[in-house]
Design a protein around this nucleic acid. Structure first.
Length: 144
DNA sequence: CTTCTGACA
DNA sequence: TGTCAGAA
Protein backbone atom coordinates (compact mmCIF):
# COMPACT_ATOMS: atom_id res chain seq x y z
CA UNK A 1 0.00 0.00 0.00
CA UNK A 2 1.73 3.06 -1.32
CA UNK A 3 0.30 6.42 -0.35
CA UNK A 4 1.16 9.69 -2.02
CA UNK A 5 1.00 12.56 0.40
CA UNK A 6 -0.08 16.02 -0.59
CA UNK A 7 3.23 17.84 -0.84
CA UNK A 8 5.45 15.22 0.75
CA UNK A 9 7.35 12.09 -0.22
CA UNK A 10 5.55 8.85 -1.00
CA UNK A 11 4.98 6.85 2.15
CA UNK A 12 4.68 3.14 2.79
CA UNK A 13 3.03 0.98 5.43
CA UNK A 14 5.11 -1.29 7.61
CA UNK A 15 3.87 -4.24 5.59
CA UNK A 16 5.32 -2.83 2.39
CA UNK A 17 8.56 -2.10 4.21
CA UNK A 18 8.65 -5.61 5.56
CA UNK A 19 8.25 -7.06 2.08
CA UNK A 20 10.74 -4.64 0.56
CA UNK A 21 13.47 -5.23 3.13
CA UNK A 22 12.99 -8.84 4.12
CA UNK A 23 12.97 -7.78 7.77
CA UNK A 24 10.20 -8.76 10.17
CA UNK A 25 7.84 -6.14 11.56
CA UNK A 26 9.26 -6.93 14.96
CA UNK A 27 12.78 -6.01 13.92
CA UNK A 28 11.70 -2.94 11.98
CA UNK A 29 9.96 -1.60 15.08
CA UNK A 30 12.80 -2.69 17.33
CA UNK A 31 15.38 -0.74 15.32
CA UNK A 32 13.18 2.27 15.70
CA UNK A 33 13.40 1.98 19.48
CA UNK A 34 17.18 2.03 19.01
CA UNK A 35 16.77 5.31 17.16
CA UNK A 36 18.12 3.88 13.92
CA UNK A 37 15.21 5.53 12.12
CA UNK A 38 12.18 7.62 12.96
CA UNK A 39 9.28 7.30 10.50
CA UNK A 40 6.45 9.78 10.62
CA UNK A 41 3.08 8.70 11.95
CA UNK A 42 -0.45 9.08 10.73
CA UNK A 43 -3.08 10.61 12.93
CA UNK A 44 -3.96 7.08 13.90
CA UNK A 45 -0.36 6.52 14.99
CA UNK A 46 0.48 4.25 12.08
CA UNK A 47 4.06 4.43 10.84
CA UNK A 48 4.68 6.06 7.47
CA UNK A 49 7.98 5.06 5.88
CA UNK A 50 9.75 6.88 3.07
CA UNK A 51 11.95 5.31 0.41
CA UNK A 52 14.90 6.66 2.38
CA UNK A 53 13.71 4.68 5.40
CA UNK A 54 13.52 1.54 3.28
CA UNK A 55 17.03 2.10 1.92
CA UNK A 56 18.29 2.73 5.42
CA UNK A 57 16.75 -0.51 6.67
CA UNK A 58 18.25 -2.43 3.78
CA UNK A 59 21.60 -0.94 4.65
CA UNK A 60 21.18 -1.91 8.30
CA UNK A 61 20.24 -5.43 7.30
CA UNK A 62 23.26 -5.60 5.00
CA UNK A 63 25.62 -4.63 7.80
CA UNK A 64 24.01 -7.11 10.22
CA UNK A 65 24.17 -9.87 7.63
CA UNK A 66 27.89 -9.23 7.34
CA UNK A 67 28.46 -9.66 11.04
CA UNK A 68 28.47 -6.04 12.12
CA UNK A 69 26.91 -5.65 15.57
CA UNK A 70 23.91 -3.47 16.22
CA UNK A 71 26.11 -1.24 18.30
CA UNK A 72 28.50 -0.73 15.41
CA UNK A 73 25.62 -0.23 13.00
CA UNK A 74 24.29 2.47 15.27
CA UNK A 75 27.70 4.14 15.47
CA UNK A 76 28.19 3.94 11.73
CA UNK A 77 24.78 5.41 10.95
CA UNK A 78 25.42 8.15 13.46
CA UNK A 79 28.62 9.09 11.67
CA UNK A 80 26.94 9.06 8.30
CA UNK A 81 24.13 11.20 9.62
CA UNK A 82 26.66 13.67 10.95
CA UNK A 83 28.40 13.78 7.61
CA UNK A 84 25.08 14.37 5.85
CA UNK A 85 24.22 16.98 8.41
CA UNK A 86 27.59 18.54 7.81
CA UNK A 87 26.88 18.73 4.09
CA UNK A 88 23.61 20.46 4.86
CA UNK A 89 25.56 22.79 7.06
CA UNK A 90 27.78 23.69 4.14
CA UNK A 91 24.69 24.61 2.16
CA UNK A 92 23.21 26.62 4.97
CA UNK A 93 26.55 28.24 5.53
CA UNK A 94 26.72 29.31 1.93
CA UNK A 95 23.23 30.80 2.05
CA UNK A 96 23.61 32.52 5.37
CA UNK A 97 27.24 33.38 5.01
CA UNK A 98 26.69 37.07 5.40
CA UNK A 99 24.63 36.54 8.55
CA UNK A 100 25.96 33.83 10.84
CA UNK A 101 29.22 32.84 9.21
CA UNK A 102 31.13 32.88 12.44
CA UNK A 103 28.67 30.77 14.41
CA UNK A 104 28.14 28.25 11.65
CA UNK A 105 31.83 27.68 11.17
CA UNK A 106 32.27 27.33 14.91
CA UNK A 107 29.46 24.80 15.06
CA UNK A 108 30.86 22.80 12.19
CA UNK A 109 34.24 22.71 13.82
CA UNK A 110 32.60 21.48 17.00
CA UNK A 111 30.90 18.64 15.17
CA UNK A 112 34.15 17.57 13.56
CA UNK A 113 36.09 17.76 16.79
CA UNK A 114 33.54 15.89 18.89
CA UNK A 115 32.49 12.97 16.80
CA UNK A 116 32.79 13.11 13.08
CA UNK A 117 36.13 11.50 12.50
CA UNK A 118 36.97 9.09 15.35
CA UNK A 119 34.87 6.16 14.12
CA UNK A 120 35.34 6.59 10.40
CA UNK A 121 37.48 3.85 8.88
CA UNK A 122 37.59 2.05 12.21
CA UNK A 123 36.97 -1.32 10.71
CA UNK A 124 37.96 -2.62 7.34
CA UNK A 125 34.71 -4.48 6.92
CA UNK A 126 32.82 -1.31 7.68
CA UNK A 127 34.82 0.53 5.07
CA UNK A 128 34.06 -2.07 2.45
CA UNK A 129 30.37 -2.20 3.30
CA UNK A 130 30.06 1.54 3.29
CA UNK A 131 31.71 1.68 -0.10
CA UNK A 132 29.36 -0.98 -1.49
CA UNK A 133 26.39 0.82 -0.03
CA UNK A 134 27.26 4.26 -1.34
CA UNK A 135 27.92 2.83 -4.79
CA UNK A 136 24.33 1.74 -4.95
CA UNK A 137 24.35 -1.95 -3.92
CA UNK A 138 21.73 -3.70 -1.84
CA UNK A 139 22.16 -6.90 0.12
CA UNK A 140 19.26 -9.27 0.50
CA UNK A 141 20.69 -12.13 2.47
CA UNK A 142 18.28 -13.52 5.02
CA UNK A 143 19.04 -13.90 8.71
CA UNK A 144 17.21 -14.55 11.92
C1' DC B 1 -8.46 -6.63 8.16
C1' DT B 2 -3.89 -3.99 9.44
C1' DT B 3 -1.06 -1.92 12.84
C1' DC B 4 0.28 -0.42 17.63
C1' DT B 5 2.15 -1.11 22.37
C1' DG B 6 3.51 -3.85 26.06
C1' DA B 7 4.87 -8.13 27.88
C1' DC B 8 6.65 -12.74 28.25
C1' DA B 9 9.16 -17.14 26.57
C1' DT C 1 13.45 -12.20 18.24
C1' DG C 2 8.89 -14.53 18.02
C1' DT C 3 4.41 -14.23 19.41
C1' DC C 4 0.25 -13.05 21.78
C1' DA C 5 -3.35 -9.92 23.85
C1' DG C 6 -6.20 -5.99 23.69
C1' DA C 7 -7.00 -1.59 21.64
C1' DA C 8 -7.34 1.70 17.64
Amino acid sequence: MKNANHSDQPSFSIRVVKEATGLTERRIRYYETLHLLAPRRTQGNQRLYTQADIDRLKYIKSLLDHGVSLKEVRAQLQQEDLIAHDRDFDDVERDAESYFQGKLIARKAEIHRDSLYPLINRHEIMRRLVRDHTSGHEDTKGDQ
